[in-house]
Amino acid sequence: AVSDRLIGRKGVVMEAISPQNSALVKVDGETWRATSGTVLDVGEEVSVKAIEGVKLVVEKLE
């Protein structure tokens, strides 16, 4: 799938994300809905860990 190429890519949080709420991230110039197990604020850099349906699963870039 096209989205599989995004695993391992870096992105930027466009809307705050919490474990209860998905929000938008920008990866390679494209906007995607994403979820995370932690709270992520706007502007934080993230890494794509997986794809669940049409959502990216991201975590904060260390």
Rank of each mutant, 00 (worst) to 15 (best):
V54C: 15
E62A: 12
V54I: 11
I17Q: 14
V25S: 01
G43A: 03
I7R: 01
A50W: 07
L56S: 00
K49Y: 07
K55D: 09
T35G: 04
T35W: 09
G43Q: 02
V39C: 13
L61C: 09
E52V: 11
G37H: 14
N21A: 10
K60C: 06
K26P: 03
G11K: 00
D41E: 14
T35C: 13
T35H: 06
T35Q: 07
S22D: 15
L61Y: 10
L6T: 04
S18T: 12
P19T: 11
E62M: 12
R5H: 10
A16K: 12
V13F: 00
V42A: 07
E30T: 08
L40Y: 03
G29T: 04
R33C: 15
E59W: 03
E30Q: 12
V46T: 01
E30H: 09
S22F: 13
I51D: 03
V39W: 14
V48P: 01
E62R: 09
K60A: 07
L40V: 06
S22Q: 09
A16P: 10
G53E: 04
L24N: 05
V57E: 04
K55N: 14
V13D: 00
G43R: 03
S47V: 15
V46G: 01
S22K: 05
V54S: 14
E59F: 04
W32S: 02
K26D: 07
E59L: 04
I7A: 04
L6M: 07
I17R: 12
V2H: 10
I17C: 15
R33L: 15
L56T: 02
G29W: 02
E62F: 11
E30K: 11
V48W: 00
S36C: 13
T38R: 06
G8E: 03
I51Q: 04
E45Y: 13
A34I: 04
V48S: 00
L6H: 04
L40Q: 01
L24G: 03
V42M: 05
S22G: 12
G53N: 05
P19W: 11
S22T: 12
L24T: 07
V42W: 04
D41A: 14
V25N: 00
G8Y: 02
E52Y: 08
V46N: 01
R9W: 07
W32T: 02
R9D: 06
K26T: 09
K26S: 11
D41N: 14
V42E: 06
L6F: 06
V48Q: 00
K10L: 11
S47G: 05
K55P: 02
D28L: 06
R5W: 10
V46W: 01
V57P: 01
K10I: 13
S47W: 15
G8Q: 01
E59I: 09
K10G: 06
I51V: 11
E45D: 06
S22N: 10
L61I: 12
S36Q: 01
T31G: 04
G29V: 01
D28V: 02
V48Y: 00
P19A: 12
T38I: 08
V58G: 01
K55M: 15
A16V: 15
I7K: 04
D4C: 14
A16E: 06
A23W: 15
E59G: 05
A1V: 11
A16D: 04
V12W: 08
K60L: 07
T31N: 08
R9N: 07
G11W: 00
K26E: 11
I7Q: 02
G37P: 11
A23V: 14
V2G: 10
T31V: 14
D4T: 10
E15I: 09
V25I: 10
S18M: 08
E45C: 15
D28H: 04
V48F: 00
A50I: 03
T35M: 09
E44T: 12
G29C: 08
A16N: 08
A16Y: 13
G8N: 06
D28E: 07
K49H: 06
L6N: 03
V42Q: 05
G43M: 03
G29I: 01
V42P: 07
S18Y: 10
V27C: 03
R5A: 10
V58M: 00
T31I: 15
V39Q: 12
S47L: 15
Q20G: 15
V12Y: 08
V48C: 02
Q20T: 13
V39E: 11
G11D: 05
V42L: 06
E59Y: 05
E30F: 10
L24V: 08
A1K: 11
N21M: 10
D28M: 07
V25Y: 00
V46E: 02
G8R: 00
T31S: 08
A23P: 07
I7W: 03
E45K: 08
E45L: 14
S47T: 15
R5F: 07
S18H: 09
N21Q: 11
D28Q: 05
I7T: 04
K55I: 15
S36P: 03
E30A: 07
G11E: 05
Q20L: 10
I17N: 14
R33G: 09
A34M: 02
T35P: 01
V12R: 04
S36W: 04
K60P: 09
R5E: 08
G53A: 04
I17W: 14
W32V: 03
E44R: 04
V58Y: 01
A1L: 12
V57Y: 09
G53I: 02
L40A: 03
K55C: 15
V25L: 03
V54P: 09
K49Q: 07
G37N: 14
S47D: 05
P19G: 14
V39I: 12
I51G: 00
E62P: 12
E52T: 07
V13C: 06
K60G: 04
S3W: 11
V39H: 14
A16M: 13
L61Q: 06
G43T: 02
R5G: 08
V13T: 04
S22A: 11
L24P: 03
L61T: 08
D41Q: 14
I7Y: 03
K55R: 12
E52W: 11
T31Q: 08
V58H: 00
Q20V: 08
I51S: 02
T35R: 05
G29Q: 05
V12Q: 06
L6A: 01
K10V: 13
K55Q: 14
E62S: 12
N21L: 09
T38L: 07
D28S: 05
G37F: 13
R5Y: 09
K60F: 03
G43N: 05
V27K: 00
G53F: 04
V39K: 13
K60Y: 04
V12K: 05
A34Q: 01
L40G: 00
K10H: 12
V2F: 11
V13L: 08
V39S: 12
K55F: 15
A1I: 12
P19N: 11
K26Y: 13
A1H: 12
V42N: 02
V2D: 10
M14H: 04
R5N: 09
G37Q: 13
W32C: 03
V58L: 04
N21C: 13
T35A: 06
K10Q: 09
V57A: 03
T31C: 15
G29L: 04
T31M: 14
K10P: 10
D4N: 11
E44P: 01
V27L: 06
S3K: 10
V25T: 01
R9C: 13
A34W: 01
W32K: 01
L56C: 02
V13Y: 02
A34N: 03
T31H: 07
K10R: 10
A1W: 12
V2Y: 10
K10M: 06
D41R: 15
L24Y: 09
M14Y: 05
V48T: 02
E30N: 07
L40M: 07
R5S: 09
L40R: 00
M14S: 05
R33I: 14
E15C: 14
Q20K: 10
V2C: 13
E52Q: 11
D41K: 15
K10Y: 11
S18F: 09
S36A: 09
T35L: 09
D4Q: 11
E45V: 13
E52A: 09
V2I: 13
L40D: 02
R33S: 12
S18W: 10
V58I: 05
R9T: 07
E45R: 09
A23Y: 15
V25E: 02
L6G: 02
P19D: 12
L61R: 06
E45G: 05
D28R: 00
D4E: 11
L40I: 09
A34K: 01
G43L: 04
L40K: 00
E52L: 10
E52G: 03
A34D: 02
D4P: 07
I17K: 14
A50Q: 06
T38Y: 10
G29N: 07
N21I: 08
G11M: 00
G29K: 05
R33E: 15
V58T: 00
S3C: 12
V27N: 01
L61F: 09
E44N: 09
A16G: 08
R33K: 10
D28G: 07
G11T: 01
R5Q: 08
L6W: 05
G29S: 05
E15Q: 12
G8L: 01
G11A: 06
G43V: 00
V12M: 06
